[in-house]
Design a binder for these strands. Structure first.
Lengths: 352, 352
DNA sequence: CACCTTTTAGTAATCGATTTCTATTTTTAA
DNA sequence: TTAAAAATAGAAATCGATTACTAAAAGGTG
């Protein structure tokens, strides 16, 4: 275990005090004779000095560090968000502790606790825990929190919402306007507010256009996500599609609650020899990076993941820097991304 | 700015000293009367004490933190690795600083410096910088480093290699054994040792099976990756496929240097009405999570990303914990993942 | 020139823990 | 019964920085 030079070593070598060394090396505007200033810098460079931020942190009580808690970094939606967060954090001098909760409330709580111990100044969280007490307690303790992805009722923090209901509505309306009437829904379990909202949007749109709701066309996963399970959404899509195809009358379109699941749907349809979009149209939700890469490229609802990450981080750091005092609630709007997985029944009818 | 209770507050309340409080609360095996021990614990719970790790770190010089530097977390190969790293780190009590270098040597250097300032105990790095001096200097300064993905010549650290040459060889050989003779290669620029190795593997296999090398079938990107650019590989695949298709005679198979690029290749082939694998077979490299999700599912070479992350982290922490003293070099072996994007010319010939 | 202000730099306290000493008290062994 | 060993706990030093305070020197003003 080697010992690194400290400001004490530099002070000794430059024949001055630690106070002055600190002033010079931490770019304080406290006046120091330029001659001495240069001498200290020279010595610092000579001994290859690298400041120990732990020492500084203890005194200044500013770790310049934030924590990010997400379900899993391998989900491209979250990895884009994390990239956005990290890009902003770096540009503003902050570092990021990354935490994958694997959708486990226990893990999430453990992380919350250790992040707090490590003196993070702020938190960006996609919370899964039904128990908001811990998160609330942290807010009490003067920890700035920005919640995203999942709305947390009654939490005194800034939140970034996405209009999931509207997204679900727009997606369904889009299919309706393309002439579809038999529109199936494939969804992950309705265990989260966001998913329930998407589902509601689907129902609202059907109602609004006077289309009868056919329960046999609605496939919602019952199997819960297992911690540490990978490719859950994809397999879900496959499974639910199989179920759906068992119903006698095929739908002309399927609205899938997220793109990863939509990949599973398309995979299974393809396996069963059903063409997308000729026989069944597929509409996704999220617009992850891969959605444009598959064949056919997926028509979907855009959730601005990378931008959301940047927004969340800027918001948090603005609060930390005191630029914003009040909590902020931001509602992001969905946008349809038009690609090739949805067939326009109207125009294809005209051709015939 | 609220002030949190410290061991000093607890000592006062429990009518004892900070030394004893510290002994009790940090689970030291220093003997403390069980009566007093309980009293301290009770008081700590009462005031809702949460230890300040910065204070501990300063004294013990152990941050229980490691840094991870990768090009970009949105690349599924790296996100899987990071997940593996983080899962192990957490289970062993460590936290992870995540850093996206965006393949910028400047950013990488900046991160290296700030991570060191933040007193990380170890580093897991996929280095991009051609200048190994800084990394080397950090090794000098008693920082444990595990390098992966990119071999770093002459760096005194543990390294996790992947046998890229063999992977390239196996992929090409696989295509040859399926009866292919006109095998194209599509690759990102040969600016990294790993890519050069894959390329060599391709050439070696052709030579070994006495197949003449046709330069018109070899498409290597000239355009460099731009920092912060997204979906680079995908677009590269599209572009290079267009170039390839300009050569008069179509190949029967394409070997693509990574799966993301292969997605671009398949996308462009599809757009041009060329069926995969009936008209052209596509072989990938990496086996990212999405490779099984596209149509047709991609036959590819497995790089064990998640396992690699776990391995790298366990290796690093074993070194930090003193379980391993010597540097370790691990060479991971490629494995062919057989899916549906490659046609067996032999057996399909038999059918005709 | 005397007084006040500004500049400059060092001393020492401080942040919140851990840990080395030192000093009791209790237990064990002879 | 007494000396040595073990158990117990507090005082104070320490980790590496920052910063409040103090103080000397330099500069300005009437």
């Amino acid at each position: 275990m080697k010992k690194h030079p400290t400001i004490y070593d530099i002070a000794k070598k430059a024949d001055t005090s630690t106070a002055t060394v600190s002033r010079v090396l931490s770019n304080s505007d406290y006046p120091v004779r330029s001659e001495l200033r240069e001498k200290i810098k020279k010595v610092a460079k000579e001994v290859n000095y690298i400041p120990n931020m732990i020492g500084r942190q203890l005194k200044t009580n500013n770790s310049m560090t934030i924590g990010v808690i997400i379900p899993s970094i391998t989900n491209p939606f979250y990895s884009s968000i994390v990239l956005g967060i990290e890009d902003i954090a770096r540009s503003r001098g902050y570092h990021v502790f990354l935490c994958n909760s694997h959708r486990s409330p226990q893990l999430e709580e453990e992380y919350l606790k250790t992040l707090f111990e490590k003196q993070v100044k702020g938190l960006i969280v996609s919370s899964i825990s039904p128990d908001k007490n811990l998160l609330g307690a942290l807010v009490q303790k003067d920890l700035n929190i920005v919640a995203f992805d999942q709305t947390i009722e009654g939490l005194n923090s800034s939140q970034i919402h996405f209009d999931y209901r509207k997204g679900g509505y727009m997606a369904t309306e889009y299919l309706i306007k393309k002439g579809h009437r038999k529109i199936a829904l494939i969804s992950s379990p309705l265990t989260r507010p966001s998913r329930i909202s998407v589902y509601k949007g689907y129902l609202n749109a059907l109602e609004n256009y006077n289309i009868e709701i056919d329960k046999s066309l609605i496939q919602i996963a019952s199997r819960e996500y297992e911690e540490f399970e990978r490719s859950y959404e994809f397999r879900n899509g496959i499974e639910l599609t199989r179920n759906l195809l068992k119903c006698s009358e095929l739908p002309t379109a399927v609205f899938v609650c997220n793109d990863m699941t939509a990949f599973g749907v398309m995979n299974e349809l393809n396996k069963q020899g059903i063409n997308v979009p000729e026989q069944i149209s597929v509409m996704g939700f999220d617009n992850i990076e891969f959605s444009e890469m598959i064949t056919p490229p997926l028509t979907t609802v855009q959730q601005p993941d990378y931008e959301m990450g940047k927004l969340a981080c800027n918001l948090l750091l603005d609060q930390l820097d005191g630029k914003i005092v009040e909590n902020v609630d931001i509602m992001l709007q969905p946008r349809i991304v038009n690609r090739s997985s949805v067939l326009d029944l109207e125009s294809s009818l005209l051709k015939n």
